[in-house]
Deep mutational scan, measured.
Amino acid sequence: NLRWTSEAKTKLKNIPFFARSQAKARIEQLARQAEQDIVTPELVEQARLEFG
């Protein structure tokens, strides 16, 4: 299971509600691909840039 830093959680809250669950799934996918067990603000930002 993935842990989220408080900064990453804050960044996730800045994503519009309607896109948040999809973004969260993508962020967690990116973390797993990078073999990380902690979601960082950088991963959230990477996903945000993908979504535009």
Rank of each mutant, 00 (worst) to 15 (best):
N1R: 13
L2M: 10
L2C: 03
L2D: 01
R3S: 08
R3W: 10
R3G: 06
W4T: 00
W4A: 00
S6L: 11
S6H: 13
E7C: 06
E7H: 04
A8Q: 01
K9W: 14
K11I: 12
K11R: 12
L12N: 01
L12A: 02
K13D: 13
I15K: 02
I15A: 03
I15Q: 02
P16W: 05
P16C: 09
P16A: 04
P16I: 04
F17R: 15
F18Q: 07
F18P: 15
A19T: 09
A19W: 15
A19V: 13
R20K: 04
S21H: 11
S21T: 11
Q22I: 12
Q22L: 13
Q22F: 09
Q22D: 08
Q22A: 13
A23T: 07
A23N: 02
K24T: 06
K24H: 05
A25S: 09
R26V: 08
R26L: 11
I27C: 12
I27H: 00
E28Q: 04
E28V: 05
Q29N: 07
Q29H: 08
Q29I: 08
L30Q: 03
L30N: 02
A31I: 02
A31R: 01
A31G: 02
A31N: 00
A31F: 01
R32W: 05
R32E: 05
Q33K: 09
Q33V: 08
A34H: 11
E35R: 14
E35H: 14
E35V: 06
D37S: 13
D37T: 13
I38S: 05
V39F: 00
V39D: 00
T40M: 04
T40V: 03
T40N: 04
T40L: 04
T40R: 04
P41K: 08
E42T: 04
E42L: 06
E42S: 06
E42P: 03
E42G: 06
L43A: 02
E45T: 05
E45S: 05
E45M: 10
Q46M: 13
A47G: 06
A47M: 07
A47W: 15
R48C: 12
R48Q: 12
R48N: 07
L49P: 04
L49W: 08
L49S: 08
E50A: 07
E50M: 11
F51Y: 11
F51N: 05
G52N: 13
G52W: 13
G52P: 12
G52H: 14
G52Y: 13
G52F: 15
